[in-house]
Design a protein around this nucleic acid. Structure first.
Lengths: 191, 191
DNA sequence: TTTTGAAACTAACAAGTGTTAGTTATCTTG
DNA sequence: CAAGATAACTAACACTTGTTAGTTTCAAAA
């Protein structure tokens, strides 16, 4: 596995790792280059700026989240099942891209305009897809009557704990994490 | 409100605001100073380094979270109530220190040693206080049998969404946020 | 074998970094 | 009012930042 990586791929992977570990602003081009094994100016043969590199990481992830959601959401009818299946899809994307996801969630604030604006729009759209399921589920009495914005925020935050969970843990599988979290959110902690 | 602020207080407040908005690493001492209305070197009359400033923000918040937890936890016997009351306490601290809390959650990674080590220890202790309630509640059958680490992570993440919630929202009160989130976590979304 | 294009290199720039030294102004206290 | 402390100031240092210019290396195409 991980054979025949091009330099560009290596740059991207290394950037994801470093940006997650230490934050976009704290990682310099020289440090990134050193980790890749080249000189800093050589990075510009592959990406035209530091911002361009962040842009690619963030927008690639956005695309993956959208694709996974859209593929998952059509498979179920009941809203409880719909929610569970998109939660699983979301977690699936995170687990398959642990470092890039973290950058996506935490470092996008460093995007420059106009990328920043475009990105915010995408994030909002994605959030609305979740809220839509919740709102419709509430209308159909599949869900309790609650503030859907609050719920959506709580869900996102809980999902985004997946990274820490997956990294720090006693061999939880992606399936187990997805099941436990969606169970918690749907049924609650109370016995 | 906010009368007779000393320069040191103003520096701290401004730092909290800027560190939250743009990240610790992205905020320079000159920018901070400008916002305060003094020159950069004058900052060093109040804090001996940039790290020292971050240290004070983070450790002050840690202390507040501990104090609120300890005060809350003794007031209840049943573990469901215990959990609810510490959740409320935690959210209370966030709401009373919106910007500083965000720094506490997101920027502590930039602390230098030995502060970084001490801080990590504190965070872990705090997490364990929550997990302790969950574990004991599971033993007493107040809670379902679930992975307490996963649950603790999910709870923390959900709680830490409070900032975005409080800021972006349709006039939710602290009481409402605390109630809705603890209801969600205890009883779940399912009707 | 020569040509070409990609991707590496070195050197350097202008701007910005946290911070120190030394000095002056301002406020508090005796 | 004089003395001392506090907190502001200007100037500067050593280093790092993202990035560009110009050059060389090297493998594939002609």
């Amino acid at each position: 596995m991980a054979v025949a990586q091009t330099t560009k791929e290596k740059v991207k992977k290394t950037a994801q790792k470093l940006f997650r570990e230490r934050g976009y602003a704290a990682v310099g081009m020289r440090e990134l280059a050193k980790e890749v094994g080249i000189q800093a100016p050589s990075l510009y043969n592959h990406y035209k700026s530091k911002d361009d590199l962040l842009r690619e990481i963030c927008f690639d992830m956005a695309q993956q989240f959208f694709a996974a959601f859209d593929k998952a959401v059509v498979t179920e009818e009941k809203f409880q099942r719909k929610l569970k299946v998109v939660i699983k899809a979301h977690i699936g994307v995170i687990v398959s891209n642990l470092e890039a996801s973290e950058v996506f969630f935490n470092e996008w604030v460093f995007l420059e305009q106009p990328n920043l604006g475009k990105f915010k729009k995408l994030r909002f759209e994605y959030e609305m897809k979740f809220r839509d399921i919740i709102d419709k589920g509430i209308k159909k009495d599949d869900f309790k009557k609650m503030n859907s914005k609050l719920i959506a925020f709580a869900i996102f935050s809980a999902l985004n704990a997946t990274y820490d969970l997956y990294n720090s843990n006693e061999n939880l599988t992606q399936e187990e994490i997805a099941n436990d979290i969606s169970d918690l959110l749907l049924k609650g902690l109370k016995s």
